[in-house]
């Protein structure tokens, strides 16, 4: 199995996080308590002061370890039942330009460049498209196709038909 390309470490250097940050993330990953003073509750669990919890979360936000704090909706429960993973074969010298354009579309929830595995897997750009119906997803995919124009050398849409497993982030084998 290939090693993760070094490029990842160049593009996404890991900001320093200490053991307390890790404990804080582990304690809050399933959600903040829905009680009037949630940071105080978390602080008590971790043996910290609430001010430190808030300051650490502020810092993790600032350095990008935490992308955002907020309400995380369940798209599926909200009726977005069609989940199409669109995959595109885009020339390597165009993938950054079009990746940024596609990633900026508001109906695209993830847009990643991934390696090809020729000849079986020619696609290097993945854009996840959510919709209430397949027709809605197809219409959105056709907008991506128009945006790419002649730079799309082939694409496919892979619909999920079953969730076989979905669990939270595991921090280690022992967690």
């Amino acid at each position: 199995m290939q090693a993760l390309p070094k490029i990842i470490n160049d593009i996404f250097p890991s900001p320093p996080i200490d053991e307390t940050d890790r404990r804080l993330i582990a304690a809050t990953q399933s959600g903040l308590p829905l009680t009037p003073r949630p940071y105080h509750t978390v602080a008590e669990q971790l043996g910290l002061k609430a001010e430190e919890v808030m300051a650490r979360m502020q810092r993790l936000l600032a350095v990008g370890v935490i992308r955002r704090i907020g309400v995380v909706p369940n798209h599926y429960a909200l009726g977005y039942r069609a989940n199409g993973m669109s995959v595109w074969n885009v020339p390597d010298d165009k993938v950054v330009e079009y990746g940024q354009k596609i990633g900026a579309l508001d109906f695209v929830s993830h847009c990643y460049q991934r390696p090809r595995h020729l000849p079986d897997w020619p696609y290097n750009l993945f854009a996840m498209v959510h919709g209430r119906t397949r027709d809605e997803v197809e219409e959105k995919v056709s907008r991506i196709a128009r945006l790419l124009g002649r730079h799309s050398r082939g694409h496919a849409v892979l619909y999920s038909t079953r969730i076989l497993k979905k669990t939270g982030l595991r921090l280690s084998k022992n967690s």
Partner: peptide, 24 residues
């Protein structure tokens, strides 16, 4: 928020962690 979470409409209220920040 409690009702929305119980109904499954809200997964959680909390932090979204950047991939590869912890582990890979």
């Amino acid at each position: 928020l409690r009702q929305l979470r119980a109904a499954g409409v809200v997964g959680r209220v909390g932090a979204v962690i950047r991939p590869h920040s912890i582990g890979t």
